[in-house]
Nucleic acid binder design. Structure first.
Length: 371
DNA sequence: TATGCGTGGGG
DNA sequence: TCCCCAAGCAT
């Protein structure tokens, strides 16, 4: 049978949750972030913002978000557009599967939900690109449902508040954090509470130099009491990133550049990139001439090795060796047979291209290296 | 600490 | 320069 001490503990926990949530809610209303472009917006915009904000800073997202909602103001518009157009507006933001999933989800919403963003948590969670935390955030912000989120801010905050040792990405630790997040959830004002948790993590309980003296829940924070705030959350063990090399073949025909579309769930999937060789090839004109004849059926006029540079991904470093290769092409439409396309530099700038390709194209245009 | 998937800012 | 990782998800 359940002892009275257990009842007492439950009462204390519930009292503590009430205190905690009250402090968070009051703090949010006084000091939380307001005026972010998606705050108080419709479900579509909240959804879009949550997807863009995955692993991405607010300051980075804002200009992308504004451009995106201007071009795709509602779900039916988004669904009617091509994936490529959507990727063009995502270009530079990274994690492009987010854009592909967003677009795919918009079509699912048209077919299965009459074009209206679903209200049920389970329906939201079923959409591609939406996991537990994102579904909860949308449910809380758009529909005021009582759902707990667990994003990076909340993980850091809870790891400190309860002095939970261990890397939060680890399954066991993450499960503990979810438990705490659920237990603290208030009965009312979930949207303000959720925003407050994010805001507190983003502005006070920051990774470095947290401002504990301004924290509304400092009194209950175990890490603060124990003086171990700076040690939490436990950083991940990181191995040295592997390094790879690639040669970018920037074939130029007049003011056109040859690009090929990456397909499938690969790096830069769905984006247009110059043809690549996953080695560093000699930049002398003879080697390049032989290669270009064989693979692109073009005559090389001139080769210029542009400065190499480093591009770092989450899981590897890529040394990029760009070669600007001026060529003579008779039939520019023939490239389409092999999934490639000649694009004017201006068009390419507006296309779905990854960040380092954009930088290179800008440089080529700016410097006007002679043909 | 499963791994792949981008990019840019801060220390 | 280098390493950290930011409103995570899919497989």
């Amino acid at each position: 049978m359940l002892g009275s001490s257990s009842v007492l503990v439950n009462n204390q926990e519930s009292l503590h949750s009430e205190w905690f949530a009250g402090r968070i809610i009051d703090w949010q209303q006084q000091y939380g972030r307001c005026g972010l472009p998606w705050q108080g917006a419709d479900a579509y915009r909240i959804w879009l913002s949550e997807i863009m904000l995955q692993q991405t800073r607010v300051a980075t997202v804002i200009p992308y978000y504004l451009r995106f909602v201007d071009r795709f103001p509602a779900i039916p518009v988004l669904a009617a557009e091509s994936e490529e157009m959507v990727l063009a507006y995502w270009s530079g933001l990274g994690y492009y599967s987010r854009a592909r999933n967003l677009h795919s989800a918009s079509r699912i919403i048209m077919q299965q939900h009459n074009g209206e963003f679903p209200h049920q948590f389970k329906d939201i969670l079923a959409l591609p690109g939406i996991g537990r935390s994102t579904a909860a955030a949308i449910s809380a912000f758009a529909f005021h449902e009582r759902c707990a989120i667990l994003d990076g801010n909340v993980k850091r905050l809870l790891a400190r508040y309860y002095a939970i040792d261990g890397y939060p990405g680890e399954q066991k630790i993450e499960a503990m954090l979810w438990e705490k997040a659920e237990a603290l959830l208030p009965e009312k004002n979930v949207a303000i509470y959720t925003q407050g948790m994010m805001d507190l993590g983003a502005t006070i309980c920051t990774r470095s130099k947290p401002e504990c003296c301004r924290c509304p829940v400092q009194a209950g924070c175990v890490a603060h009491r124990n003086g171990c705030v700076a040690l939490l959350p436990t950083p991940r063990l990181r191995k040295k990133l592997p390094e790879r090399k690639t040669t970018f073949l920037l074939l130029r025909n007049g003011s056109d550049i040859l690009l090929e579309k990456h397909t499938g769930r690969v790096i830069w999937g769905g984006l247009w990139c110059p043809p690549q060789l996953d080695i560093q090839i000699p930049g002398d004109i003879e080697s390049v001439r032989v290669y270009c004849r064989q693979f692109f059926n073009v005559e090389v006029i001139n080769v210029l090795a542009l400065p190499k540079f480093l591009h770092t991904f989450t899981h590897f470093k890529l040394h990029i060796f760009p070669l600007l290769i001026d060529v003579a092409v008779e039939d520019t439409l023939k490239a389409q047979e092999t999934g490639m396309a000649w694009m004017g530099l201006d068009d390419a700038q507006c296309a779905a291209i990854p960040s380092p390709v954009r930088k290179l194209l800008q440089e080529i245009q700016k410097n006007c290296w002679e043909s």
